[in-house]
């Protein structure tokens, strides 16, 4: 299944790249006269397959051998480059997911247990407002404030040679955590799942025997929805990461993808696509594993 998914994703991205205007040779030959004749000569010289399907198949053949090719822009091997920066993106997305959950879970739990009291109304509206903030705008505002109010330059250095400071790490995480637009959804989904489970008959039984309803509702009312949310929001976070990494010069996969797209760096774009698809797939795999661990019935379905 996973292999089929990767094949499909890579194929679709390839077709989009093929149909989109521009090609890597123009970028490559920017300094020289980028006429059709020079470009064609470069193509022949690099022995690029002529038709789209031979191009795709040759890329696929190399992938199966473990060769993702070299970046057109930098000449470095794609695989090691993508893996190097994907770690940074995983830090960013994981951190901002935790940030989102830290905010959303208490609000959801509180309003599931106590109903929509005025305080919970306030918090719920707050999450909707926060979700409506565009992430790039929010990022620039945060940078503006940190420079002008605190005199700190919050951009993570793209070379990251001087190491990480907590400040450089936390700002993008907070911005993506708040601005990824999923908080209100997390609150709503978790609250509904929890209230549904609280109304289940086995929770009444738990109360009748004097047991904790939190303990009995934990698996179905908290663990399952949380893993489901995390798995389903990973693509959104990766999408948001592209913007946030760009805004904060964060040396991650999103920023690399942005640059690769500008340079029409096809091998790099394809490599990033495959790694991103693997990360998303790992998320759903994790969800499945938790589901089977919690509910043995799921494994037979």
């Amino acid at each position: 299944m996973a292999a089929l998914l990767l094949l499909g994703v890579s194929f679709v991205v390839f077709i989009i790249l093929f149909l989109s205007p521009g090609n890597p040779f123009n970028a490559l030959l920017k300094e020289q006269a980028a006429t059709g004749a020079v470009s064609d000569a470069a193509k022949r010289g690099l022995s690029v397959p002529s038709s789209w399907y031979t191009q795709y198949l040759s890329w696929l053949g190399n992938i199966l051998k473990g060769d993702f090719g070299n970046s057109i822009q930098t000449g470095l091997p794609v695989l090691s480059e993508v893996i190097r920066v994907s770690i940074n993106t995983v830090y960013l997305t994981a951190g901002s997911m935790i940030m989102t959950l830290v905010l959303a879970v208490p609000i959801a739990v509180l309003s599931a247990r106590r109903g929509l009291t005025p305080t919970n109304w306030f918090f719920t509206i707050f999450t909707y407002v926060v979700s409506a903030i565009p992430v790039f705008w929010f990022g620039y505002i945060v940078i503006y404030i940190s420079i002008h109010q605190f005199g700190v330059f919050p951009l993570a250095s793209s070379s990251s040679s001087q190491g990480w400071s907590w400040f450089h790490f936390m700002l993008p995480v907070i911005v993506l955590g708040l601005g990824n637009g999923t908080i209100s959804e997390v609150v709503r989904y978790l609250r509904e799942e929890m209230s549904r489970v609280f109304a289940e008959e086995y929770i009444l039984t738990a109360r009748a025997k004097g047991a904790s309803i939190w303990k009995h509702s934990f698996k179905e009312g908290f663990l399952l929805p949380i893993t489901e949310i995390i798995a389903s929001k990973i693509p959104f976070l990766l999408g948001g990461a592209v913007v946030v990494e760009q805004v904060f010069s964060w040396p991650g996969m999103g920023r690399m993808a942005w640059q690769a797209a500008q340079y029409r760096d096809y091998p790099l774009i394809m490599g990033i696509t495959v790694v991103a698809a693997i990360i998303v797939r790992m998320g759903s795999l994790m969800q499945r594993v938790v589901q089977i661990m919690v509910n043995p019935r799921a494994s037979r379905e």
Partner: peptide
Amino acid sequence: RGKEIAMIFQNPKLSMNP
């Protein structure tokens, strides 16, 4: 609850934690 008064419900399959 539980200690002095215990309760049995209808719908036993739904009343036990699955």
